[in-house]
């Protein structure tokens, strides 16, 4: 089905009250000493077209360094056990760094569970294919000399949950646009505040380690973002 037709179908489903659509918009900063220091703007949507199917998609644009499209992602999840939130999720990600003429295409497969008692977890694999040179921008390049497999993991705890707000912390080696290498142990804290019935404010702070090998640990990477999420 063409993309426009799918989008139209989702809109019709939403209008009929059959699909929950949660679009969100975030602005953020990502910095890594010596590597990059940039702002980004991301637009993403989580869609539940059917009770046991979850879709997610998003675009991220870089500002001030590697300007332009930074990442695009598309994911689909099938819920196998509703009470445990057990779901198999498949996703594709394309990330690119325009100044460096470099990109990376990834396919992720994860088994996710939760939230149960505020905990959510995930375990999976990613196949990453870095692409350099003329075709770095293409999400269709799936071979290259530097491709590799990595493990993915996630364990987060929503340790404060009130009527209008919540806070969560934990580690997650993947998110909608990125897949870290496993030794980075990315730590994150995020939260949301419900302003009105269909509008939430979001905030997130994350970091990641380099040099874990052999006990030398440096918190290297910083990512901060804030935004809004609608529900309709």
């Amino acid at each position: 089905m063409p993309l426009k037709a799918q989008a139209l179908l989702l809109i019709l489903l939403a209008a009929a009250g059959r699909a929950a659509i949660l679009p969100s918009f975030t602005l953020g900063y990502r910095g890594e000493p010596g590597v990059e220091s940039k702002m980004f703007a991301a637009a993403q949507a989580d869609v539940t077209p059917l009770p046991y199917v979850r879709l997610d998609a998003g675009f991220s644009f870089n500002l001030f360094q590697n300007n332009g499209l930074g990442a695009a992602a598309l994911g689909v999840g099938a819920v196998a056990h509703d009470r445990l939130g057990l779901a198999l999720r498949l996703a594709v990600q394309h990330q690119q760094w325009n100044d460096w003429q470099a990109g990376e295409n990834r396919v992720l497969a994860t088994l996710e569970a939760g939230p149960v008692y505020g905990l959510d977890a995930g375990l999976g694999l990613v196949h990453r294919v870095p692409v350099f040179g003329d075709r770095y921008w293409s999400p269709l390049v799936w071979s290259g000399g530097a491709s590799e497999w990595n493990y993915l993991y996630r364990l987060r705890w929503k340790f404060v949950q009130r009527e209008n707000w919540w806070v969560r912390a934990g580690f997650s080696s993947y998110d909608r646009f990125t897949a870290h290498n496993p030794q980075q142990v990315p730590l994150e804290a995020d939260g949301a505040y419900r302003v009105k019935e269909d509008l939430e404010l979001l905030a997130r702070a994350g970091t990641a380690i380099v040099g874990l090998s052999g006990g030398i640990v440096t918190f290297h990477e910083v990512e901060l973002s804030a935004g809004v999420r609608y529900e309709f």
């Binding site: 890594e32 590597v35 990059e36 760094w97 460096w100 470099a102 590799e148 980075q184 090998s213």
Partner: peptide
Amino acid sequence: YDGEKPMMWRLASGAERVKVQSMLV
């Protein structure tokens, strides 16, 4: 880069590895 297998003994940061390789190229 050192092969396809999952490994934790490479330069850690994905962006740093990409930047290094793009400079080498």
